[in-house]
Amino acid sequence: MTKQVALETKLDSAAVDKLRTILLAEQGDDITLDGSGVQQIGGMCLELLMSVRHLWGAAGHDVTIENPSEQMLDDLGRFGLTAEDFQGRPA
């Protein structure tokens, strides 16, 4: 079963605890994260998302991002990533 989670507007360091709680609550499920409202994603939340994606992927579950906002794509781009890096299951 795929769970839908809407990401917060501002994913800075202050938002990481809340995001971690939300993601851990969906442990064991596929998660689709809606990035349409994201205006900023910082390093800490990015690390959390990538780590969750890695751990969930190892357990056979997908963590993907849908509808990333322009700003989110821009931030991901600056970090060296693209939207495709959050599609499918990590290698």
């Binding site: 851990l24 690390e47 990538m50 780590s51 890695h54 751990l55 060296g80």
Partner: peptide, 28 residues
């Protein structure tokens, strides 16, 4: 102009999610 590569030092377990902040590195 920047050419950026991001590397994740992957977590070993769920517990590692409580110690965030040092798993990302960039080569730019």
């Amino acid at each position: 102009r920047c050419e950026t590569k991001l590397t994740l030092d992957p977590p070993k377990s769920i517990d590692d999610l409580n110690t965030l902040g040092s798993r990302l590195s960039w080569n730019i």
